[in-house]
Design a protein around this nucleic acid. Sequence first.
DNA 1: CCAACATATAACCAAATGCTTATGTGTTTA
DNA 2: TAAACACATAAGCATTTGGTTATATGTTGG
Lengths: 115, 115
Amino acid sequence: MQTNEALDIEGTANVLKLLGDKTRLTMVKIMSEHECCVCEFVDLFDMSQPAISQHLRKLKDSGIVNEARRGQWIFYSLNQTSPYHSFIQTVIKDLPSQAFKVEELTAQGKRICCD
Amino acid sequence: MQTNEALDIEGTANVLKLLGDKTRLTMVKIMSEHECCVCEFVDLFDMSQPAISQHLRKLKDSGIVNEARRGQWIFYSLNQTSPYHSFIQTVIKDLPSQAFKVEELTAQGKRICCD
DNA sequence: CCAACATATAACCAAATGCTTATGTGTTTA
DNA sequence: TAAACACATAAGCATTTGGTTATATGTTGG
């Protein structure tokens, strides 16, 4: 079992609070498998675009995720340099893969790709 | 690294929400090291007895902890039969030990023991 | 430069959260 | 059996949370 160093209780509680929301937890699991932009999340969740943006902002403010603009789109991904990155990986490790959702997007031609 | 089976996103999010509070996270870490009764938690946290009871109730309602009355006191401990038990162990594994707090209680003669 | 698109922000609101104080319930002991 | 103790529950309240709609900002393409 992997060991993370120097996790303090307060910081960890804050990360867990962020992950303690079904939408954000699913987002994080998705991002652990695929980079995603906002409009993809909007398609994946039954929720307005501002609601999605606000969840992503919380994750970004905490340093859990990165944003990267590519043209029109802003892509979000897990921040691998966060002190909590490996902790988060541990937490989401056994959650069911959400890859099928992204595959459904692809099947519907809704997947954004900037290559 | 240990693997837990069949964790669903919604249930996991609920557990994480419970752990996403500094007080409850500390309580759970303490209980992973020592069984504790309510009055000990009251001594350990700068908080009223009802506040402590309410945190413990949430943990109990979710099946994360057990309660056991022994005489006057009610002792709380991690419920090892919870489907989330090993997941919780994984989450709290690298948090700093809280054993020193219980040792302080013992030093002050405030530790409850029913043997 | 302007229309269309992607995203962020602001303002608002209902529901949930986490505390408080007051009081009820169960157990022990004198 | 009554007082003392441990704990739970109820009610009230301020704050936080997570959504909504409306609007602002930034980017692209005609």
